[in-house]
């Protein structure tokens, strides 16, 4: 199965039509069966196209965007559903902020090759800033099957932003059968390779699933985002045992890789990490 992570670098955001054309070209040229966009994709497009104005800072912009984005979200979903259907791919469209029953959630969306919404995932662990913005936590983790001739029947889950730093999320996904996690992330530009390693790379190594990590490249109200998108697997089945099947630079528009599921099953058989869990010792985790 061919997968790709997009950073949104090099995509023209000045209008919906330009964005649609550029993204469509990129989806076609990368030849992937599954593509992941980064976090805040809906916000970045909204700001770039002039549909929203930036606030005084990142938090303020997010707040203003959250307050009045219902129509925008619908347009965003329709646009990405169309593109998924047109290219017959799974398209994890990145994230937006959704409002339900007076609560705000940072959520990711994935569309299937028929252009239908196949998964919506709310972020379950908030940053300090998100708590200050009064965001709410999702309380479920959804797994969906990747149906298709090249998908190897893999089960996938969406990981939203800060959830990648909380190993509970990945462990729940892994023990419920997820083979592949699709992470939409956004990290401030700068020296962040270790922050990334402490995130999805670490989760892949302790759970032995695949991950496609799309990291935002862009500017939101003066905050520069620029980490490296990547496709990650267990160290033993990746070049140089690095854990990276592919990794870009912050401004790489796209990284792609092929997932060899037989390799992954082989390493799980040789070194069954999850079978060696010692549940008798975890009572303290059940105290909630």
């Amino acid at each position: 199965m061919q997968v790709a992570a997009l950073s949104m670098a090099g995509i023209n955001l000045e209008s919906i039509d330009r964005y649609r054309a550029d993204l469509s070209n990129l989806l076609k040229s990368c030849g992937a069966d599954l593509v992941v966009l980064p976090a805040y994709s809906a916000l970045v497009l909204g700001l770039g196209s002039g549909a929203f104005m930036p606030g005084p800072d990142m938090a303020g912009t997010l707040y203003m965007f959250s307050a009045a984005n219902e129509d925008w979200n619908n347009l965003f979903f329709e646009l990405h559903g169309d593109l998924a259907g047109k290219h017959k791919i799974f398209l994890a469209a990145g994230t937006t902020v959704e409002k339900e029953a007076g609560c705000f959630y940072h959520s990711a969306y994935c569309f299937n090759p028929a252009g239908e919404l196949c998964c919506r995932q709310r972020q379950t662990h908030l940053t300090r800033v998100e708590r200050e913005l009064d965001f709410s936590r999702g309380e479920e983790l959804h797994i969906f099957k990747l149906q298709g001739p090249k998908s190897d029947g893999l089960e996938a889950g969406l990981v939203v932003g800060n959830d990648v730093r909380h190993p509970e999320v990945s462990r729940i996904f892994a023990l419920r059968g997820a083979d592949l996690l699709l992470h939409s992330g956004a990290l401030a530009a700068g020296f962040n390779c270790w922050t990334q390693a402490a995130g999805m790379w670490a989760q892949v190594q302790q759970n032995q699933f695949w991950a496609v990590e799309a990291q935002l490249s862009g500017n939101i109200a003066g905050t520069l985002f620029g980490a490296a998108s990547a496709v990650i697997g267990p160290c033993e089945i990746t070049p140089g045992q690095s854990g990276y099947l592919a990794s870009g630079y912050p401004l790489s528009p796209v990284v792609t890789a092929a997932l060899n599921e037989k390799d992954r099953q082989s390493i799980i058989k040789d070194y069954p990490l999850l079978q060696m869990l010692n549940r008798q010792a975890y009572n303290d985790l059940l105290a909630f």
Binding site: T124, H125, L126, T127, R128, R131, R137, G138, E139, E140, L141, N162, R165, H166, E168, R171, I172, L175, R176, R279, Y282, L285, L286, F288
Partner: peptide, 17 residues
């Protein structure tokens, strides 16, 4: 960035652990 989500853990931990 550190956070906890007791509702999430209550939902899944008894099953997975």
């Amino acid at each position: 960035w550190r956070d906890t989500n007791p509702a999430l853990y209550r939902k899944y931990f008894p099953q997975i652990y």
